[in-house]
Computed example of a mutant assay.
Amino acid sequence: MERTRIQKIFSISNPSEFEALALEVFQFQYQQNPTYHEYCNHLEKTPSNVLASQEIPFLPIAFFKTHKITSSPHKPEIIFESSGTTGSISSKHYVRDTSIYLESFRKGFAHFYGPVEDFCTLALLPSYLEREGSSLVYMTNDFVSKSQHSSSGFYLYDLEMLQEKLLQLEKEETKTLLIGVSFALLDLAEQFPMDLKHTIVMETGGMKGRRKELIREELHGILKNAFNIQHIHSEYGMTELLSQGYSKGNGIFKTPPWMKVLTRDTEDPLSIQSHRKSGGINVIDLANVDSCSFIATQDLGKTYVDGSFEILGRFDQSDIRGCNLMAL
């Protein structure tokens, strides 16, 4: 994918620019991605008869487990691999150019929170650090390394040291980001409750089989009470995407300008629904230029007129994933 198109993707400023680039990327991926090309042909959807982004076919996310989803002939710089239950097949995302991922998550975070350099970043992602190929660890490691604060870093199971660090940062009124997997944040909340006035607590979802699954309201209620804060923030991302949605509270997510979420009818998966109806989550992530930008996930949710969305759960019988919110 030529650099000029990538620059256009990350400088989208309005819906018409998004629409034009979505159709351009669709045409490119239809031509360059063999698996996606075959899938679109099976549906009789081609650039000649797809005239709007909502008509673009969304590739079922399970294809990332069974096929090499790539729109580039070049060797990937990195392969991200999903977490999952023991014995399950992992998704693989072949990322040709890591600079695109870096640009996407840095600009995406800054779009909602300002430069990550302004934060002391504390990462509580023990399960992710115990395996190779986590896109979440890659992103968080970059946040830590770009931080101007000496206390930024990863914390595995030493929750007492993390508490001491957080209390010290609170005393200094340091702007802090605590990003963690749900089960680890619950462990911290139960063992070391404390007041966090200058800290954003951000959960990335996932009990990973360590604890009983909780609905979002229950999880957030426990964390809010333990840390005496009004809102728990959330990150919505996955191995198969190079962009993330963020929620600043109440489970309502927003996306950066180059990412869009729609819902499909659960009875007719090729039909896009109107807002406020529960359905399968479809994601357009234009940062996925070298793989596939149009993905039908296994999450259930709702979209709203302002472009925000919420996650309501998972389709039955789909794998438990590391990077999704808790199923209802």
Rank of each mutant, 00 (worst) to 15 (best):
R314V: 03
Q244L: 14
K171M: 10
P115G: 13
E19M: 05
Q244S: 12
A110S: 15
D142L: 08
K208H: 06
L270E: 13
G153C: 08
S104F: 01
G133E: 11
V289P: 05
I272A: 06
S145V: 12
Y30T: 00
V25Q: 01
T4A: 14
F294Y: 14
S71W: 00
F294V: 12
T70L: 00
R264L: 05
D118C: 07
Y236K: 10
G153K: 07
D319E: 05
S13Y: 07
K8D: 15
E38N: 12
E240T: 07
D319G: 00
L223C: 10
Y155N: 05
S152D: 08
E160G: 01
E24M: 03
S11P: 08
E103M: 12
L286K: 02
P256E: 00
L328D: 06
T303Y: 04
D319H: 09
F192G: 08
E235V: 12
S182R: 01
C323E: 03
K68Q: 14
R264A: 13
F10G: 10
I272P: 00
S48N: 10
P73M: 05
K197A: 11
Y155H: 14
H149T: 03
I9Y: 11
I232S: 07
V95S: 04
G313H: 06
L328C: 08
N228A: 14
I200T: 07
D195T: 09
Y128W: 10
F112Q: 10
V116E: 02
L300H: 03
T85N: 10
S135E: 08
L162N: 07
F26S: 00
I179W: 10
P15K: 13
E160S: 13
I281H: 03
F64H: 04
V181R: 03
L43T: 09
Y128M: 09
G251N: 04
R314L: 08
V144S: 12
N14P: 07
S88I: 05
K175H: 04
E2T: 14
E132V: 15
K75I: 04
I252D: 07
T239G: 02
V144W: 01
V181N: 05
K165V: 15
R96C: 01
M161H: 12
T46Q: 11
H275Q: 09
E170W: 12
L159R: 05
L59M: 11
L51G: 02
L156P: 05
S274G: 11
G205I: 01
T176Y: 09
N33T: 03
G280F: 03
L167F: 03
P256N: 00
P73A: 06
Q230F: 08
N250G: 01
G221K: 13
S13G: 14
K208F: 00
M326I: 07
F183S: 02
S53C: 00
V50M: 07
G84I: 01
E164R: 09
N141K: 15
D319T: 06
Q191H: 15
F192V: 13
G301I: 09
F227R: 11
T140L: 13
V283W: 10
S48P: 02
Y138I: 11
E218Q: 15
G180K: 08
P47F: 05
N288E: 05
Q230C: 05
G307T: 08
I12A: 13
G280V: 15
S11Q: 15
G237E: 04
D299Y: 11
E173Y: 04
A184C: 11
L129M: 14
I12G: 06
S234I: 10
Y304I: 00
W258F: 02
F192K: 15
